[in-house]
Amino acid sequence: RQPHHRKDGGTAVAITADVTDPAAVQTAADRIATDLGGADLLVNNAGVMLPAPIEQLRADQWRHQIDLNITGLMNVIGAFVPQLVTAAGARGVADLVNTSSVAAQNIFPTFAVYSATKAYVSHLSRHLRVELGPRNVRVAAIEPGIVGTELQDHVTDDGALDWLAGTRQSMEWLTGQDIARTIGFLATLPPRVNLQQITIMPTGQTT
């Protein structure tokens, strides 16, 4: 069992789980329910970006992106939505935040499979908002531009690597803290307010 961490009047517990393993995700959800009384804010952020020209037929990378970005997302939603509904009933509001990407809307050559998985995230979020909104669960899709995280560390395609390196030279990327502050803002809005889709871009990024 992982220890609880307490600071500034709050309690945190870190749980490791493979989101592509539904049993592991359910175990994590059960632990949250037992130790912390259930979740009232869920941020789906696990994902991987593996651009490559489609003609390379990198089926292994296709599967990896679909398994993590789509199936993993659904596993977490399935495990935690009951807790969100319960929390919303008790507290008047709960939040489901799904990390999508500006790639869900825009066109980036060689990023077709990744972009398609993120389009799934954005469109799913719009549907879930209609389903869960009447239960006082707000659903939001965050669509960031380029954020400086480990996401880029998995990229192996030379063309995509060159493009990413060029963007780092030409603009200041977003940081993880920028996204966290945005989520904190939407989660603390009055219960009547649901920001259903937020596109957050580096000031210097144009696509």
Rank of each mutant, 00 (worst) to 15 (best):
T188R: 09
T156S: 10
E131V: 14
H154Q: 13
A14K: 03
T182C: 14
L68N: 10
W173Y: 14
S125V: 08
Q61D: 14
A24I: 07
N69I: 11
Q177R: 14
V48A: 03
S170G: 06
G9W: 13
P51F: 02
V85A: 07
V193F: 00
T207D: 07
D35I: 13
I107T: 15
Q196H: 14
T207H: 07
N69R: 06
I146Q: 08
I15K: 01
A52Y: 11
D21R: 11
A39E: 10
L174C: 07
A24D: 11
G89I: 04
D35T: 15
D158F: 04
K7A: 11
V193W: 00
N98R: 10
Q197M: 06
G38H: 06
A14L: 13
V25M: 05
W62N: 05
Q2C: 05
N106P: 01
S115M: 03
S122Q: 09
L41S: 05
M74H: 15
R91K: 15
E172Y: 01
R58Y: 01
V25C: 03
N44P: 08
R126T: 11
V85W: 04
Y120C: 13
P190M: 06
A59T: 13
V25W: 01
V155R: 08
L57P: 03
A187P: 02
S170H: 12
V48T: 15
M171W: 02
A112Y: 08
A17C: 10
F185P: 06
H4W: 07
F111G: 04
Q169W: 01
L50N: 05
M74C: 14
A17E: 08
A104R: 09
V93T: 14
V93P: 02
R126M: 13
T20G: 08
